[in-house]
């Protein structure tokens, strides 16, 4: 972190924990949860958001003084949409199978509230370098949650990580399956993602009591 002053470092580190976009700011849940049944999809989604938010924040910050404030939402949407098209085309070209898994959820990065939220709250009022750090930090905070959820859902639901059978073979009954362990099919269905995030919030807020909400 020698490269960054303490203030700049905080821009990246804050959103990772105490100001996490998903668990604290409640942004960007929409496109996040549906694709976390597999770790691989979660990682790709996290990388895509890091790219879009990092670059988008810089672009918005560069043109912040010439956007008329009345049409800024549309300008922001166009910038995001363009970046997302780039991501989508790259995925289709180099990881076709994965782009099928992610399906419409790549497109939904456009309406990911984290992105619009950071544009509005940060990039419109700060310089490009700071905006870049803020974008990367928030996208990382988002990615961390995504990867944690993806890790547990894939491990407990299918007994695999990145598609590799880490717990042994459920059909041939090797590894832990030899002792009668069964995959928890519940983790694969979509609602399980919500419950896992709920538990993450629970753990985080028990560790840091300052974050607890009034009812």
């Amino acid at each position: 972190m020698a490269l960054l002053s303490k203030k700049d470092a905080n821009l990246i580190l804050d959103p990772l924990a105490d100001n996490n976009p998903i668990t604290i700011q409640v942004l960007g849940i929409c496109s996040a949860l549906a694709i976390t049944a597999e770790l691989k999809a979660s990682v790709v989604m996290a990388l895509s958001v890091i790219f879009v938010l990092g670059v988008g924040n810089v672009v918005i910050s560069l043109i912040r003084n010439i956007i008329p404030s009345k049409i800024r939402i549309i300008v922001q949407l166009i910038v995001v949409a363009t970046l997302v098209i780039v991501v989508d085309q790259v995925l289709k070209a180099f990881a076709y199978e994965l782009s099928k898994t992610l399906a419409v959820f790549v497109g939904l990065i456009i309406t990911n509230c984290i992105i619009m939220g950071r544009f509005e709250a940060f990039a419109l009022g700060n310089g490009p370098w700071k905006s870049f750090l803020d974008g990367i930090g928030n996208a990382l905070g988002y990615g961390v949650i995504l990867i944690i959820v993806g890790f547990f859902r894939e491990l407990l639901g299918s007994g695999t990580l990145f598609g590799i059978k880490v717990l042994g073979d459920p059909i041939a009954k090797t590894g832990v399956y030899a002792f009668g362990y069964e995959n928890n099919g519940f983790m694969i269905i979509p609602p399980a993602a919500l419950i896992v995030v709920g538990i993450i919030i629970w753990v985080q807020r028990s560790r840091n009591r300052a974050l607890i909400e009034e009812n």
Binding site: L194, V197, I201
Partner: peptide
């Protein structure tokens, strides 16, 4: 439970409702 208040419990309820809708 205090740490679950607000957001946390809403997530978990939504998950349970989702299972119901399945």
């Amino acid at each position: 439970p205090a740490p679950l208040r607000g957001l946390g419990i809403t997530f978990i309820i939504t998950g349970l409702m989702g299972i119901g809708f399945q």
